[in-house]
Each structure stands twice: as C-alpha cells, then as structure tokens.
Design a protein around this nucleic acid. Sequence first.
DNA 1: CAACAGATTCTCT
DNA 2: GAGAATCTGTTGT
Length: 164
Amino acid sequence: MQPLPPTFAERDATVVAPELLNKLALVHGRLARITEVEAYTADDPASHSFKGRTGRNAAMFGPPMHWYVYLIYGMHHCLNLVTGPEGEGQAVLIRSVLIDGVDPARTVGPGRLCRELGVHRSFDGSFAELFDDGIAPPGEPEITPRIGITKAADWPRRWRVVRP
DNA sequence: CAACAGATTCTCT
DNA sequence: GAGAATCTGTTGT
C-alpha cells in the first residue's frame, strides 16, 4: 500500500482518469477500489468549470489531489478528484467503486457510492487520500462515451475496469 | 428573490 | 431502454 503523491493529480484529467482505475481511495476510514471514472476538463461544455469559477465549483479550481463534491438533483452527491494545474478547472468523476464486504450494488453509480461512504458537501475541498496496492486491474480498461449528461455526451472520456 | 439546472436513480416495459 | 420523479443549491436579475 503506497500513498499516491500529490504530483499524481497534477496532470490532465484525461491522463489521470485511466490511471485512477483500481487505485484505492481512503474515505472516512474505508478503502474503496475505483472501478469507473469520467474525465472533465474546462473546455468540456458538460463540465462545471466550463462557465468559469463560481462559488459552488471553487474547489475544482483549487489545488489538485483534493476532492470536489457537489450536490445534484437536490439529493445525490458526486465525488470528483481535482486534477491538472491549479486553477485550470479539471476533475475526474468517480462513478463506481468496490468496497470489501459491501454489496457492489451499493457502490456502483456516483450517487450511490457517496451515500455508502457518507460523502457530503462538507467533504468538498479536502485532501484526497489515494493509495496503490500494486494489484493490477483484472482486465484492460474499457473506454466508452459518457452517460447521464446532455452536452458532449459522446466524448469518449469514461473509463471502467472490465470484469474478469 | 425566483427561475433553473442537474455529471442520478428507480421503476417500469 | 426509456421515461418519470424529485429537490436543493446556485445563479443571475
């Protein structure tokens, strides 16, 4: 178990996202293995940072290797890792994770995993504790278009671990 | 102050 | 696979 250095996140979201697969995030004392991610950059019409900095997305423009958490649909939280040079407004959305001893159905989907891990808005802007346990992903990462959004949905910026 | 957005989830078919 | 539900925080006037 080796902690990932902050430099890990100091690169473009499209580079960090696939590397994030099978890494471990420590959230509220629990380890979650990342199995699906999605990259968002400032030039992406679907990104919160597209229209510039606002009160809500401030963390996205903050230092990388920190969490950006927002509330969506008035009820679901989404967890993002801020990446890229500070101030650029890049992030990687964590879409699915696996936790030992927890039914995968509870941790597949951005809203679900936040509920399971107890991630809420107060987590916004905190340092992201990420680890690498050296275990390789079970298969080649699969690159697919994004889902659940209306703008630029066909951009191939979603990565997930293919089940063995 | 009011309109609005929304990167979801669930429940059907 | 498609459509409805659903509710705050955010944003701009």
